[in-house]
Simulated scan of single mutants.
Amino acid sequence: MTPDILFHKTYQHPTSQEWVVFVHGAGGSSSLWFKQIKDYRQHYNLLLIDLRGHGRSNQLLKGLISKQYSFQDVTLDIINVLNHLNIAKAHFVALSLGTILVRNLAELAPQRVQTMVLGGAITRLDARSKILVKIGDWSKNIIPYMWLYQLFAYIVMPQKGQKQSRHLFIREAKKLCQKEFKKWFKLSADVNPMMRYFRDRELNIPTLYLMGEMDYMFLRPVKEMVKKHKFSQLLEIPDCGHVCNIEKPIEFNQYSLAFIQQHS
């Protein structure tokens, strides 16, 4: 693997020509898609990516991650992997902050995005989210980043049934260094301006929002946006919170695969 390409893993299907690309959220890694691989690889070629500074990309791109970066930079990282593998077009499945990257990729290169499945999507930071970000911004140079991350994990995923999700995300976040955490944390300031633009400008790409009905921080803004977008639809998964691909993998796989197959 060349040093300027993110760490990635592929699963080749014996006959399918179509690809599904999985994009994780901040603090996670491609390993958090382990409950999707078995079902998806029966139908498609799979590409799993570790974003810069995350998972096994933590030791790559050292020249890049030594600097501040934007959503644009991180999105271009994904496009570079697609180019490296000669993937002209794909279905994209993303979670949490990864949904912003996929939506941005669709803005930069719409011809490369066949469908989007956006799980636990972030479309706007509400008042509670903004307060959380401000507290984190004020204390990020004082409090160890893992304390902050654990606090965020409990606030975003507070229910008892989300224990596994919290554990997995905290485990993966330990692979980030303090500097990387701060860089990703600063990206949160760009969420609302970027998503305001995305709300006003819908792309004619079939989009499925998969949200847990108990995702109290992010579900309402998605509901509001889907009402205005004719190419988007929302499915709520009962008794489920933010990290729906881990909390309810059977439902997540069933709904998302049916959607992708509908547009294959």
Rank of each mutant, 00 (worst) to 15 (best):
V93H: 01
K89Y: 14
L101N: 06
Y149I: 07
Y145P: 04
I87K: 02
K130F: 02
Y145L: 05
A88S: 15
M157R: 00
N104H: 13
I135A: 06
D137R: 13
P158A: 07
V102A: 00
P158Q: 13
K89L: 08
R166L: 02
S139E: 06
Q150V: 01
L151F: 15
V156G: 00
I143E: 03
V133F: 09
F152K: 03
A121Y: 03
T115R: 07
A90R: 01
L118A: 11
L125H: 14
N104R: 10
R124P: 00
D137M: 05
L95S: 07
S139N: 15
S139I: 14
S165Y: 01
Q150N: 05
R112G: 10
V93Q: 04
Q114W: 00
V113M: 07
L151K: 12
W138V: 13
N83I: 05
D126W: 03
F92N: 06
I142W: 15
F152G: 08
Y145I: 07
P144Q: 08
G161M: 07
K89V: 15
N86K: 15
R103D: 04
V133M: 11
V117W: 01
S165G: 08
G161T: 01
V156Q: 03
Q162A: 14
E107A: 06
L118S: 06
S165D: 04
A127T: 06
H91N: 12
A127L: 09
I142Y: 15
W138D: 14
G136L: 08
L82I: 10
H84D: 13
Q162V: 02
R112D: 09
Y145W: 08
V93M: 10
L97N: 09
E107F: 08
N104D: 10
L95T: 12
I155Y: 12
E107S: 10
K160D: 13
T115E: 07
R166N: 01
Q114G: 05
I143V: 15
V133G: 05
L101R: 06
K163A: 15
M157Y: 00
G119W: 00
L101D: 01
L118H: 06
M116G: 11
A153H: 02
A106T: 02
D137C: 11
